[in-house]
Design a protein around this nucleic acid. Structure first.
Lengths: 206, 206
DNA sequence: ATAATTACTATACATTTGTATAGTAATTAT
DNA sequence: ATAATTACTATACAAATGTATAGTAATTAT
């Protein structure tokens, strides 16, 4: 899924525009920059860029979002030292994790530790993941993703509550396991809602 | 040219929206967030914010740009300050810990996590403190102090090597204990050189 | 050899979006 | 006391904008 030369140029133009204006370009503005005479010409490129995972879009004006993958090849992530992740207070089912009303704070993580690859932070409640050395009160960095691989430490939604567990897909069900033996594995007949994968941990001592 | 409470809230909503979506909100989206039923309500706020120098705008969709002035007050309000600790590569006896030649990098920690109370960072080698959930590869924040209290997790110098251990003062000697049972406690007849106390931990997963 | 992908042109259309007009009520400044 | 500012409601409109339809030509994959 590599970019063609033209797609690469479009991506660079988007990046340049954002650097100058701090908000993304419209389709016709991009067309103008690239001397393309039809919005469809840009639309095609944007579909390709999205399909290949370099941008994300919603269907509203200027809603282009560069992904981590794009920022990497655009050579942006190298000089960042601290990356601020929004600390989400409560995750409710059916609402986007990063709804503004959920954001309580912003927590710095070393950029190279999460390699630009995390979307929000969460405070851990309880000792169910003590076997993985994730303790009550720890702040975890989470990468948003709706699926997980076996053994991943994930944030899942159980009864409107965000829980941190290890994910295991079995033949007939999904198991969410604590790493503290005093908690039983949760057997889910229906697939649980996965909010993301835990990629880093921070803890204050004392 | 100070902001009113309401204007401040509008500015914060814009900031939060950009953090989440990476592009600015439209006027009607802002109105929705603030339960305002007319675009004019937001327009008034945007004119005020621009007049007072907190945003810049062009007359196209989602063209709000936060100025440095805005980012300054927003940074203070919503972002925990990052405190950069020098990452010390090797601690040698008889030389100051923070000798320039030792500093390999600078690692951000959330300021409130260490409460301004740490002086350097260190990468952990080995699994001797696994019982305290400090793992091989973790980065710890250390407050410089030459003494410790019983039970403190400290950085000590043993044979020119920095070690992380729990400190216990007995009647006739000092014990430096690992929290991994496979390592024996070290009995020190002479007081070991204490470099400091561990106050925070950071870890990347996978 | 044929299908799929890439990279566009040209035009049309519905929605989104910024802006304008015309107000009200409460607060703050002069 | 009066004017200005703040903080809105309600509606209207034109421009900006994303998307759709219908194509073409060249290149790349199967």
């Amino acid at each position: 899924m590599e970019l063609t030369g033209r797609q690469n140029l479009v991506l660079k133009k988007i990046y340049d525009y954002i650097l100058v204006n701090s908000y993304p370009p419209s389709i016709r503005e991009l067309a103008g920059m690239l001397y393309i005479n039809s919005p469809r010409g840009i639309s095609d490129h944007l579909y390709s860029l999205e399909r290949k995972g370099y941008i994300e879009r919603r269907s509203s004006a200027r809603s282009i979002k560069l992904t981590w993958k794009a920022l990497q090849i655009l050579g942006q992530n190298t000089e960042k030292e601290a990356l601020y992740l929004p600390l989400v207070g409560r995750i409710a089912a059916g609402r986007p994790v990063l709804a503004e009303e959920n954001i309580e704070d912003h927590i710095p993580f070393p950029a190279d530790m999460i390699r630009g690859n995390a979307d929000f932070a969460l405070r851990v409640h309880g000792d169910s993941m003590i076997g993985d050395h994730i303790l009550n009160g720890d702040i975890i960095a989470v990468r948003s993703q709706p699926v997980a691989e076996n053994g991943d430490i994930v944030v899942a939604l159980i009864d409107d509550e965000a829980v941190v567990k290890r994910y295991y897909r079995k033949e007939k069900h999904v198991e969410l396991r604590s790493s503290n033996p005093k908690y039983m594995p949760m057997l889910m007949k229906s697939d649980p809602i996965i909010q993301g994968k835990v990629v880093a941990v921070q803890r204050a001592l004392r």
